[in-house]
């Protein structure tokens, strides 16, 4: 359904010649009806990937093919048309809603932009969708976003994204600003909406546990590259990339009987302005050798559906 081909996104920092290598040559496929999780630390390019798929940021090179249509070559109005098929939910639930407009108005906006249906039909659909995501339509009509809690705002965002009946939903850290108890509500809501509307999801987050739970396949990103792409259960049970292993081991387990695993962590992710040569993880990798420093590993399939980009895969 969606194919990302050799996508590269670079930003100039404003300093002469300095470039942020946000996304460096990534390729993957999203199948109809599946949920692809994208996980990584801040600055790994996961959000940029999501935005580049929507063509909200310009890709430096590479292409995104949606339903057989190459998005890179589309004109402004064609692009606007295609974008209605894919929608996005953003991280900050409050910032993604215009604070000066009523919630009902915000949710109606997509239909008003595209002039779909009469005013009556529009608001009938708005109310129906709001109810579906668990927001009281009467309250929505008279309230501004800041009168709702973070979790509710995220539900409103989801309602807005559903208004144009999209097929692909890109969720960019939709729950990381929410409390655990609310996070679970939103995740369950996304799961049920996905079934109901037969959506395809790209779920971007930094929390591996959350991503794993909701996704069929998970892509682990590090400094603009995908280091591992595998079915979500396999990622956890047999991580093959040392970075994936580090990521899993770093998650604090809510069980005091488990001793904190002594993980040898080497520093922090370097800046994407000047990424390391070869494998980008090598300065922090306990297994790094000379080949890692000089040669960039390619994403290769080691077992069925399990792709890893490492010279010395684990297991």
């Amino acid at each position: 359904m969606l194919e990302v081909k050799n996508l590269v996104v670079e930003f100039s920092t404003g300093n002469r010649g300095e470039k942020v290598h946000a996304v460096s040559d990534i390729s993957f496929i999203v199948n109809e009806g599946e949920t692809l999780g994208v996980v990584g630390e801040s600055g790994c390019g996961k959000s940029t990937t999501g935005r580049a798929i929507m063509q909200l940021v310009k890709s430096t090179s590479g292409d995104v093919v949606f339903d057989g249509v190459s998005l890179a070559g589309l004109s402004g109005s064609e692009l606007r048309e295609v974008r209605t098929q894919m929608q996005m939910i953003f991280q900050d639930p409050i910032s993604s809603l215009n604070p000066r407009r009523s919630v009902r108005d915000i949710v109606a906006e997509p239909l008003l932009i595209w002039k779909r249906g009469t005013t009556e039909q529009v608001y009938e659909k708005v109310d129906r969708t709001l109810e579906l995501v668990g927001i009281d339509p009467i309250r929505a009509a008279e309230s501004k976003p800041h009168q709702f809690s973070g979790g509710q705002c995220q539900r409103i965002s989801i309602a807005r994204a559903l208004m144009l009946d999209p097929r692909l939903l890109i969720c960019d850290e939709p729950v990381s600003a929410l409390d655990v108890s609310v996070q679970a509500q939103v995740l369950n809501l996304l799961e049920s909406l996905k079934k109901q509307f037969k959506l395809t999801l790209i779920f971007i987050a930094h929390d591996l546990a959350v991503v794993k739970n909701i996704s069929d396949r998970v892509a682990v990103m590090y400094l603009g590259r995908i280091c591992e792409l595998a079915p979500s259960d396999a990622i956890y049970s047999q991580p093959k990339h040392p970075y994936t292993k580090l990521l899993i081991d770093s998650i604090p387990i809510p069980d005091p009987t488990i001793e904190t695993r002594a993980i040898e962590t080497l520093g922090e992710p370097p800046s994407p302005i000047d990424p390391p040569t070869g494998c980008r993880f090598h300065p922090r990798c306990p297994l790094a050798t000379d080949i890692c420093r000089s040669e960039q590993p390619q994403l290769t399939e080691t077992s069925l559906g399990h792709l890893v980009a490492c010279h010395h895969p684990l297991g």
């Binding site: 935005r51 929507m54 909200l56 606007r80 048309e81 974008r83 209605t84 894919m86 929608q87 996005m88 953003f90 991280q91 900050d92 910032s95 993604s96 809603l97 215009n98 407009r101 915000i106 906006e109 997509p110 932009i113 595209w114 965002s157 807005r160 144009l164």
Partner: peptide, 22 residues
């Protein structure tokens, strides 16, 4: 910079509409 502008863009709103309404 706020995400609601991004959201409006991804909904296909025109520039003028974004300026006026967002």
């Amino acid at each position: 910079q706020r995400e609601y502008v991004l959201a409006a863009r991804s909904l296909g709103a025109s520039r003028f509409r974004i300026l006026r309404r967002e």
